[in-house]
Write a protein that binds this DNA or RNA. Structure first.
Lengths: 175, 175
DNA sequence: CGCGAGTAAGACTGGTCTGTCTCCCTTCAG
DNA sequence: CTGAAGGGAGACAGACCAGTCTTACTCGCG
């Protein structure tokens, strides 16, 4: 409920009143469960990490490839399918970070979840036996985030483009 | 005035009342010049294109390199200097696009200005005699946008990383 | 039965937002 | 000198915001 509204329209555009009304819960009940709207947004970000990062991107990518290298590249296959969906809503972590700024607690939380994504990439890179996996995952993440922004602009081929550069990146981290 | 506030804190976070008060102009006067806040934001985006895209990124990059290829790569040298500035405020076009969505007029305008940036890259690629410059500029733009988001997260080395991948991209578009 | 916990509904507070309107002063042209 | 135009200051409207609180109702448990 709140997840769909927040991920589709952004955390700033959806007010507490609307959430209350749509979920059929009373306002006092809401504030008994969450001390503030920000704490609900924090819960949303945690749910986003679980549903999107872990259960969609990472697990899908692991399913689509047999070797760790294939699984890494498969991330952009998953992105390719995701970018053409009509309910494509970009990355909530990037959205919240840019909307609230890195100093805001919600921006900080977004930075942490983005670092977690980078951790998944780094783990796959380790499994693939690549060199300098910290640098690798940071470069890889640039491709992921850049392609997401390009997809927001309407470039549905952004995933393929990023995947090509990702292939070169893997090559340069083999030795 | 409005330019600094909008670019630093985002167009949604800065209200008309604050702009009025800081600029010492009367509210009626403001609304005589601009029919709505959105039209002021449109003017801001145009100014951002002029001051930042054209007069900072493009002209700086052209100054720092002698050949078109060097000038392309110099974009990320300019980014590197920009990322470490304490008043680094990311890319207003990306911010507005993600904040308002691609359907909103301001989101559309941001998409147009981002396409303009891609046009500058494509022109440099033409000068450098690269192949498939449309694809090239779209891939290049992924690196630009990805590194900006990474810089927002605090990765000050994002420009160097993007520049390395940009070098590989140039190589693959030579023939 | 009786009581307390939880909840729906929604009024309310104090603040914000965009945008309109009034009042009054200054400036400048004829 | 006079009158029109424009701008500063700010009240105001109407809508929204997050968050608090009151009222009335419905449960489950002893």
């Amino acid at each position: 409920m709140a997840y769909d509204l927040f991920s589709r329209r952004g955390v700033r555009d959806v007010g507490v009143n609307e959430l209350i009304e749509r979920s059929g819960v009373a306002k006092a009940t809401f504030y008994r469960h969450f001390p503030s709207k920000d704490s609900l947004v924090l819960a949303f970000l945690a749910q986003r990490d679980q549903l999107w990062t872990i259960e969609t991107i990472v697990s899908q990518a692991r399913l689509r490839g047999t070797t760790p290298t294939e699984q890494l590249l498969a991330i952009f296959d998953v992105f390719g399918d995701w970018f053409v969906r009509d309910d494509f809503e970009a990355c909530s972590f990037i959205n919240v970070l840019l909307e609230m700024g890195p100093a805001h607690p919600l921006g900080q939380a977004s930075i942490d979840y983005l670092a977690k994504i980078r951790g998944h990439v780094q783990a796959l890179a380790e499994e693939a036996g690549l060199q300098r996996t910290e640098d690798f995952s940071r470069s890889w993440h640039i491709l992921m985030k850049g392609s997401i922004v390009s997809a927001s602009e309407g470039d549905t081929g952004a995933a393929k483009r990023a995947q090509q550069m990702a292939g070169w990146l893997i090559e340069h981290h083999r030795s």
